[in-house]
Write a protein that binds this DNA or RNA. Structure first.
Length: 273
DNA sequence: CTAAGGACCTGTCGGC
DNA sequence: TGCCGACAGGTCCTTA
């Protein structure tokens, strides 16, 4: 469900309500979602710890505690919000973290694909160490990117979903980014020209930062933790617009399937060569 | 090493 | 109305 802009929106909303608070208890209902420890181990490890800060790395939400980090990944349908204890629950709530101040952090996830893990400074690298560049940091240069793409014969669209390159891009923004950069999603990553790679890097930064400014996208069930919907879905140029006119050239946007995921693009603006 | 396909889950929607 | 397949913001594992 959420990609970088949605995760960033969640983090910004919950950070002021969690920082400095103490976790007094935790409850988990789906053991499968806990990695790599058991519910009992995580519960014992985090109980009593103060929350120092809440940050994002790729699509991971990092709740930084005194002695370790609680890492939450929302996958497709996860949501995270803070509410006063005693308020009515929603369907599909899977985990709760009770705070000393009378609120609770709630993890809701209908499909139960999300994950919760607890890591210490010693073990965190195994979970987050393989993640690639942070798209909003904009701290990687053109030669470095070109070198990384040089050996990749895979189409560029599925490649954008590989979190080991840029961390945080998902299925919606991959299509949006390629439309913005005027690159054909089926083009082999290794065959991108210098100019195309440059446009790709610019589009990644541009599309994702604009989406963050709008509070992410709400298309099915993503919701800001305050119940507010994101607004970026109104700015989609190609995603879920198959059959509608391209906003640049007017020809029809088409949908194809790559690596079992939908891709949307304009055949005319995003020519292969 | 890379690449492709299935697996993991539940909910919703459109067609017959 | 009810059933069935397709599809959904993601990643991980197995196989070639």
């Amino acid at each position: 469900m959420p990609e970088l802009p949605e995760v960033e929106t969640v983090v910004r909303a919950i950070r002021p309500r969690l920082s400095g608070r103490r976790i007094v208890d935790a409850c988990f209902t789906v053991p499968r979602q806990l990695l790599p420890q058991t519910d009992r181990q995580i519960r014992r490890a985090i109980k009593g710890q103060h929350i120092r800060d809440v940050r994002r790395r790729g699509k991971y939400i990092l709740v930084e505690l005194q002695k370790g980090v609680l890492m939450i990944h929302l996958r497709m349908t996860g949501r995270l919000y803070v509410r006063p204890v005693g308020q009515p629950a929603h369907a599909h709530e899977r985990a709760w973290f009770a705070l000393e101040d009378g609120h609770e952090l709630v993890f809701r996830d209908p499909r139960t694909l999300g994950t919760i893990s607890y890591a210490t400074p010693k073990t965190i690298d195994a979970l987050v160490g393989k993640l690639g560049w942070e798209p909003l940091q904009n701290d990687v240069d053109l030669p470095t990117v070109r070198e990384k793409l040089r050996t990749r014969r895979t189409p560029v669209k599925p490649l954008l979903l590989d979190q080991r390159l840029w961390a945080g891009i998902g299925n919606i923004y991959a299509s949006e980014i390629l439309w913005e950069a005027r690159i054909n999603p089926a083009k082999a990553a290794a065959s991108l020209t210098r100019q195309e790679t440059q446009r790709l890097m610019a589009a990644i930064l541009d599309v994702l930062s604009r989406a963050v400014k709008k509070g992410g996208s709400t298309i099915r069930d993503f919701m800001g933790p305050d119940g507010k919907a994101g607004a970026y879905q109104k700015q989609f140029r190609v995603y879920e617009r198959a059959g509608q006119p391209c906003l640049r050239c007017g020809s029809k946007v088409i949908r194809i399937v790559q690596a079992q995921r939908s891709t949307y693009y304009c055949r005319v603006c995003q020519k292969k060569r």
